[in-house]
């Protein structure tokens, strides 16, 4: 390779890198500036009606229902002010639990519900052994999320 070729490769690499970075930035910060919408934002009509989007919040304790004989799950996502029922057919992540964070990707069904194509669990930044967790939040029915 001549020095001129090396310079051309270098400039191409930079252009490709800057272009990719700009594209990623656009994807991440424009369209998905909010990675997900909260149930309150959906209730306020801020979420897109036609397009797919993500809804994030806590799984309401006691709301998870599994249809017998299929992978379909129904649960309610809440931010403790508003909530929205979600329907999903598929495998749930390990951290999917009642009272825990969840992000569902899908669209509104037009009847006040949400049909998810993908369900991701959102965990918090707290790490502790189970004994410590139990002593901080004694398991009790109807305790509510935190």
């Amino acid at each position: 390779m001549t020095p001129r070729h090396r310079r051309m490769v270098g400039v191409a690499a930079i252009l490709a890198g800057v272009g990719a970075a700009a594209l990623l930035a656009r994807l991440a910060f424009e369209e998905n500036l909010l990675y997900f919408f909260s149930p309150s934002q959906i209730a306020a009509g801020e979420a897109p009606v036609e397009r797919k989007f993500r809804v994030g919040g806590l799984v309401t304790p006691g709301s998870v229902q599994r249809d017998p004989g299929s992978l379909t799950v129904r649960f309610v996502v809440t931010d403790n002010r508003h909530s929205i029922p979600v329907r999903y057919s598929g495998v749930l992540p390990d951290l999917f639990k009642e009272g825990k964070g969840v992000v569902a990707n899908g669209r509104l069904d037009g009847q006040g519900g949400f049909v998810a194509e993908e369900v991701l669990a959102k965990h918090d930044e707290n790490y502790m052994p189970p004994e410590v967790a139990d002593s901080m939040h004694p398991p009790q029915p109807g305790g509510g999320g935190g």
């Binding site: 994807l27 990675y35 992540p93 390990d94 951290l95 991701l120 965990h123």
Partner: peptide
């Protein structure tokens, strides 16, 4: 992958 349920998301 095991915790969130995905290898990658385009989050910030």
């Amino acid at each position: 992958k095991p915790m969130w349920g995905t290898w990658w998301v385009w989050d910030a």
